[in-house]
Design a protein around this nucleic acid. Sequence first.
DNA 1: AAGGATGGCAACCGCGGAATG
DNA 2: GCATTCCGCGGTTGCCATCCT
Length: 198
Amino acid sequence: MGRPPCCDKSNVKRGLWTPEEDAKILAYVSNHGTGNWTLVPKKAGLNRCGKSCRLRWTNYLRPDLKHDGFTPQEEMLIINLHAAIGSRWSLIARRLPGRTDNDVKNYWNTKLRKKLMKMGIDPVTHKPVSQVLSDLGSISTLPNTNNQMNFVNNDSINNTVPAATEPSGSHYSSITVNASANKNTREDQVHSWEHQVR
DNA sequence: AAGGATGGCAACCGCGGAATG
DNA sequence: GCATTCCGCGGTTGCCATCCT
């Protein structure tokens, strides 16, 4: 048995939020705070999924959110953090007061990715596209046809930051990333990066 | 002016992890 | 230890506005 749905999707409203619904969430949260989101729609008088309410609050209604455009400083920070830790949007967003992971993710996907590509930088590896292409070329000319499987099965990969997120040789900073890549050390990497850029 | 293409943002989906009983 | 519940995350989709032909 899998996990049951959090709400009856067929009887729940979806799509864009109305100002009335926003007002109900705001009123409820200001009176009760953000507690059990599954109870919020019932108590706030909303015909919405609790998860949907939480998303609306965290991505749009929170009073500490900025709704204006990203500054060049924020832009630079996103690019550098993405180079250091990859698409860990929530971690990146935590370094940007007033921004949500959704904001950062959307901004990256719609603006920054294209901007980097225009500059001739691969947005995944943060290396020049020419270098990425030559790397690919040298991989594909290797005689062993099991290269991919060898790469995936290589135990050492578990202790190594994936090349895609490796910032060494990055064009934004001279950060070095240590070998272990679990959640905590990624956070540590962000801290150490912040220390270095100051 | 019309309508197709593109950009930008909001919202949804499904999964994994943490918390709890 | 296991099942259940909730939360948070990243990827994806849908919709609306604007641009282009």
